[in-house]
Amino acid sequence: MSHILSAQNVNKKYGNFQALKNVNIDISKGKIVGLIGPNGAGKTTLLKSVLGLDSCDGELKVLGIDPYKKRADLMKEICFIADVAVLPKWIKVSQLLQFTEQTHPNFDVEQAKYFLTKTKIKMNHKVKELSKGMTAQLHLALVMSIDAKLLVLDEPTLGLDILFRKQFYDNLLNDYFDNERTIIITTHQVEEIEHILTDVVFIREGEIVLNANMDELTNSYFEVMVNQDHYEEAMKHKPLTMRKVFGKYIMLFHSHSRDVIETLGEVQRPSVSDLFVALMQEEEQA
């Protein structure tokens, strides 16, 4: 089994609305993939299919399993946080741990208790008594105590304050991630996760418009600070986007080599969010 996830010609229609169009993607072990797209682009639809929460057409295999047909089997090997605060409100922390231990063969309850000792969460707390941030901590503690091959996070930090968000990703990276695991993350706060990603996938109107690893991106997209002197020449190279800051032009180029670009000005690595915006605009014009 070479790929953790493989999708071939995956389509999903809701009535007349085509939510996913011929999605082809392979994700291999040890990656942290950011799935990025505007609202309504089909991120959640794709993840729902991957998690077996909804059916789809085409060939979709997660760990070699058809997710929709065998969700219960698949969930032994993968886990997900679909949104913050989806833990049942009425349950006690101790009950949550007990239930997960009874139903999940790969859950380590001692590990979860250890993670919780580092937070303010007590075993006799009910979920409804916890703040949104604490609920996310609890959910993360639970998920990090499951020995899963794939972790899917769909907007896991939406609505949390910046301290919790930072801590969330720090914990994930330091205490959980290793090369045996794979993580797929969607979020709107791209800038917070781009330093931990190994790959990015851009999705737009149900189609995958970019699927690349971060090294490829840095070798083919360049952000350049161009002086007024070089403006004319730079424009010849057709920048993807351009914005003016303090009398200089910041241009984004797609190019196969750095050599020519370097003559135009100071070269930087573009941020994923700038790249995202550029590619989305390019698609719109095309």
Partner: peptide, 20 residues
């Protein structure tokens, strides 16, 4: 109720089939 408050997404993240 679990669909209403979204907690179904937690229950479904565990290896428990819908039949069970």
């Amino acid at each position: 109720d679990d669909r209403k408050d979204g907690s179904i997404l937690f229950w479904k993240s565990l290896p428990v089939s819908d039949t069970q």
